[in-house]
Amino acid sequence: MTDGTGAGSGARVRPRLTVLSGPSGVGKSSVLAELRRMGPDVHFSVSVTTRKPRPGEVDGVHYHFVDRAEFDKMVDNGELLEHAEFAGNCYGTPRAPVLAALASGLPSLLEIELQGARQVRAAMPEAQLVMLAPPSWEDLVGRLTGRGTEDPAVVARRLEIAREELAAEPEFDQVVVNDDVKSAATRLLHLVVGPAPDAR
Rank of each mutant, 00 (worst) to 15 (best):
L114E: 01
D139E: 13
H62Y: 10
V141F: 04
E111G: 00
V177R: 08
P125G: 04
V120F: 13
G10Q: 13
L106A: 14
A100R: 15
V66S: 09
S21M: 10
L189R: 12
R95A: 10
A11C: 03
G56I: 04
D139M: 03
G4R: 04
G4S: 09
S30M: 05
R187P: 06
P23Q: 09
N89K: 07
N178Y: 01
V175Y: 03
K52Y: 05
V181Q: 12
G78N: 02
M38E: 01
A184T: 03
L188D: 09
A122P: 01
L17M: 14
Y91F: 08
P55R: 09
V177Q: 05
F44H: 03
D72I: 01
A167I: 10
E165K: 14
R157D: 15
V120K: 06
M131R: 12
T50R: 03
A100T: 14
K28I: 10
Q128P: 03
A168I: 02
E160W: 06
L191I: 12
V48M: 03
A100Y: 08
Y63E: 00
F71S: 10
E34W: 00
A185S: 08
S47N: 12
R16M: 08
D139S: 10
G105V: 05
V13E: 12
R118F: 00
L132Y: 04
L35F: 01
E34M: 05
L110G: 00
P134Q: 02
H43C: 09
R16I: 02
A84L: 03
R121E: 07
K28T: 11
M1F: 12
T2C: 01
E160K: 08
G10L: 15
R37I: 02
S136I: 06
T186V: 10
G39D: 08
P107R: 07
E169R: 15
G56L: 02
G8A: 04
V175N: 04
S183C: 05
R143Q: 02
P40Q: 02
G60R: 05
D76P: 01
A196N: 06
L20V: 12
A196D: 11
T2K: 09
I161H: 13
G8S: 07
